[in-house]
């Protein structure tokens, strides 16, 4: 088992690159990404796993980075919003007005991107189940739903 006792330098695989960070054993992935690696796209919203603003992908699966220790992420493939570039879901969010203040957007993008990558035509109940993990306080969610569906059904490629 992988153990840490003191402040230690670890190597994280983030957005396809190996990055080194000095961490305490109790550090959470969110803080390491932001304070250690300068990747501030993942946002703190509650530090309790309730809001999803800090969502990143770990081996392709959406994970709330406030609930994962940095030490647990070693050896896994981490993708943050900074690792997305001109993807269909980013274009869909812009074209369909799926954000206002933008603070929850990174988290929602990561969930939607993973969903579109894992499933072809999920039923509405599955889309709801995936997206209810995150909170947006500005939009009505309708726009986010339209954006993810536009990508899932290939309207926006």
């Amino acid at each position: 088992m992988y153990t840490l006792k003191e402040k230690t330098v670890v190597t994280l695989r983030v957005n396809g690159e190996d990055r080194q960070a000095l961490i305490r054993p109790g550090d959470i992935l969110l803080d390491t990404l932001r304070d250690g690696l300068g990747l501030t796209g993942a946002k703190p919203g509650c530090l309790n796993g309730d809001c999803g603003a800090c969502t990143v992908l770990v081996d392709g699966t959406p994970i709330k980075s406030c609930l994962m220790l940095t030490a647990e992420a070693v050896g896994h493939e981490i993708t943050t919003v900074e690792g997305l570039s001109d993807t269909p879901i980013q274009r869909a969010f812009i074209e369909l007005f799926a954000f206002q203040c933008g603070y929850c957007t990174s988290g929602f993008l990561m969930v939607c991107h993973a969903l579109a990558g894992q499933m072809q035509t999920p039923p509405d109940a599955v889309i709801d189940e995936w997206l209810e993990s995150n909170i947006c306080r500005c939009t009505s969610y309708e726009e986010i739903g339209k954006a993810v569906r536009a990508v899932l059904n290939g309207e926006i490629k």
Partner: peptide, 13 residues
């Protein structure tokens, strides 16, 4: 806002 580039107060470190 869709790339993580938009900076909010706590992002200035």
């Amino acid at each position: 806002k869709v790339t993580g580039e938009a900076k909010y107060t706590a992002d200035f470190l």
